[in-house]
Design a protein around this nucleic acid. Structure first.
Lengths: 411, 411
DNA sequence: CGACCTTGTTTTAAGTCTTAAACTAAGCCC
DNA sequence: GGGCTTAGTTTAAGACTTAAAACAAGGTCG
């Protein structure tokens, strides 16, 4: 594997990327600030930012007086340079959002999916239609869209074209990227597992900001995790890393829908928690029309019901052990607890969860970690998906759509 | 933190590193081969290898006829350019080995440590003495030693100077690097957790060769893992990642020496296995003078004893669940089972372990992984430690000891 | 045995890139 | 206006890679 061919031109690409990323994440900055932050010389900063401005990627953003000297010109990424679309493909519906390049939301389109096992081609058609709807609603040209990120359930195998494996909904090797492409969507597509896009959103805009080793633990009907190592979402050899929900935590324990026993998901997934609560109530159904309402009922009942308290305490225990496993294996700086069930439980239980984690984790790694609640909520899958094309842009340091005025690749 | 490759000189460093690494791992190669393998132009290969040869890092290694053309000159890393030392600091003794740059072992020095909790200063003195002994035995100048790698029990926090945390032997924040330095060892020191150095050894010379996502699972008295992601040993935010032994696998289960309950180590560590066996025998002690002998007795007894068979089957089950957790979380290409207990058990149980892993892991990641036995045995800690200075050399592409004839850093 | 072919390695000339240093720009203060 | 300070640009030099040409060293074959 030839380690990324290194010619003198790659240096320019790399520096474009560094400067563009710094501007994106650390807001408007003067050329001087950029020089200080990146370690590049003032000459290079001037040269490269000039090129970026020529390409329309960067614009000036006002002046700042510097006491007794020439005022600084602030630069920032041009929010109008392009738009991006993020799609959240859930089991019951599709949410599509359109953003400018600064990831300010401009349009939202919701679409329900028919109940039952979704047909891949049908899903692709719905995705394509809602992407077009979002673009039209925003009054943007399709050519102006940098890329479309799609967060999907299940594992996304990143080959020449992305393929989705989702045992739970009966998708085994669905070539979803090709299917969407076949529906006539022209901008670049970026498919990724929804938990990972949600994790990416927390990293960029939520509780993960500033840290480079983070695990975003997501509790909903299912249980998953997005593992961030050295600032990047960890994928493993075939993109299916982070399947925290199906790690064994009670050997030989409760059966899990994956076919195994004792999985974490069977204990702290919404279904598992509610099932345990139902048993604690002597088999009586939990009030509430769906899992979400039922879980809220459980949390609210904790004040007056010993059974509810016990179930929640046990949940904190299991969850703490599960989190401790993450702490021991990944040694992160931060654990972010999210997902609708995670937020509902965490709001009440966080201290007890921390206590249980401390009891199960080794002292040294536990001493390095803080456990926090997610800031964005489960709706963040779409923004997270929209970050994917932006991340690609920042990494290249150039807009892949236009043939290079300057430093981009030609081959 | 400005990412590295920013000036035009870094390109040279990077290419030196690429070429040197390729020569190191893929044996003697002609300049032509190097050009093909690295994607660098023939001109650059010629230029850079010339420089490397001038620095004494690379030497010619014979000719090879090419049918009908100029014969190729083979190049290889010069094994005589420098020597490296690897030290394995165990709980009962220290093994020190000296290698040439091709990591061929030239000398071995063993030293016992007094029983009981080891005193850090004393250990440092023993390390220094045995390093000196190994150097002297080999008849090498201390200046000729590129570096000394030291594999230690516990977590190594890599700061300005390495600090060791090892709960088990009562080391809390021992500045071992400084202590060894104070004993008058002058070459660069590289401290790392012993499990991680052993994992590195398997990656370079054992069952991990060629793969980039591997978990090396080590079973001995303790249980640990070295996690390799994208070719590098994963450390986490403070180097204590990979504490697989203390992940919870039976919530509320057997007490573990770490103070928690239900840790994997309590079930599949040598002590845990033997304890379960003793109970299965109605409390009678297991024959054998130490854990190693007792475990061998257990494995041998499987043919005739139902109790032994049952204990081993259960062990395979627990271990399979533990390995499945690694598979689900890290999605590796390969799991390497090692450590003295791992090898003793794995020789008999591998099929049953695979079966149990399959039962607990998700289909998709399990389909991507193969489970193999380690090839090197537990003695590999020292070689693994010795790879550390070599890895540093390959990464720099230049010998840090000598002031640059050419492309090395000056600051 | 010498012209010609093949393959490997080195030299040459061109082009890209960063940087230090000199230089220009734009404000304040007296 | 002259000095002073800070921001940003231009210039000249040096480091690198590369394609192409040149050179090296063997074989083949008439």
């Amino acid at each position: 594997m030839p380690a990324k061919r290194t010619t003198v031109r790659d240096v320019r690409r790399h520096n474009r990327s560094t400067l563009l990323s710094t501007l994106f994440f650390d807001g408007p900055l003067s050329r001087h600030d950029l020089s200080r932050l990146t370690g590049l010389s003032a000459a290079t900063v001037s040269n490269v930012t000039g090129e970026l401005a020529e390409d329309g990627l960067v614009v000036e953003a006002g002046l700042v007086d510097s006491d007794g000297g020439r005022p600084r010109v602030l630069l920032r990424v041009n929010p109008q340079h392009a738009h991006v679309v993020g799609v959240d493909v859930g089991e019951t519906g599709i949410r599509t959002e359109l953003f400018d390049l600064a990831l300010t939301r401009l349009t939202t389109v919701d679409r329900a999916l028919p109940a039952g096992t979704p047909d891949p081609t049908e899903v692709a058609a719905h995705v394509a239609a809602s992407v077009r709807a979002a673009i039209e609603q925003a009054g943007v040209a399709e050519r102006g869209v940098l890329g479309v990120g799609v967060g999907v359930p299940g594992t996304v195998e990143q080959g020449r074209t992305a393929v989705v494996h989702a045992q739970a909904i009966g998708w085994g090797g669905v070539p979803l990227e090709e299917l969407i492409r076949a529906e006539g969507i022209t901008p670049p597509l970026f498919l990724e597992n929804g938990a990972k896009t949600q994790g990416q959103a927390e990293m960029w805009f939520g509780a993960g900001r500033g840290a480079s080793h983070v695990v975003i633990a997501l509790l909903g009907s299912g249980v998953g995790a997005a593992v961030v190592t050295e600032g990047n979402v960890y994928r493993g050899s075939t993109s299916s890393a982070g399947e925290w929900g199906h790690t064994t935590i009670v050997y030989g324990g409760r059966p899990c829908r994956c076919g195994s026993r004792g999985c974490l998901e069977a204990y702290v997934g919404a279904g598992g928690v509610l099932d345990r609560y139902r048993r604690a109530r002597g088999g009586r159904a939990v009030p509430g029309e769906d899992e979400r309402a039922q879980l809220e009922h459980l949390v609210a009942a904790a004040e007056r019901s010993a059974a509810a308290t016990r179930v929640l305490d046990e949940t904190a225990g299991y969850l703490g052990a599960g989190i401790a496993n993450l702490v021991n294996l990944f040694n992160p700086q931060r654990i972010v607890l999210g997902g609708w069930a995670g937020l509902a439980l965490g709001a009440q239980l966080l201290p007890r969860i921390e206590q249980a984690t401390a009891a199960h984790a080794l002292h040294h790694p536990y001493g390095q970690v803080s456990i926090e609640l997610a800031r964005l909520g489960p709706d963040a899958v779409a923004v997270g998906a929209a970050t994917l094309p932006v991340a690609a842009l920042l990494e290249r340091g150039a807009d892949p759509r236009r043939q290079p005025s300057s430093g981009a690749d030609v081959a």
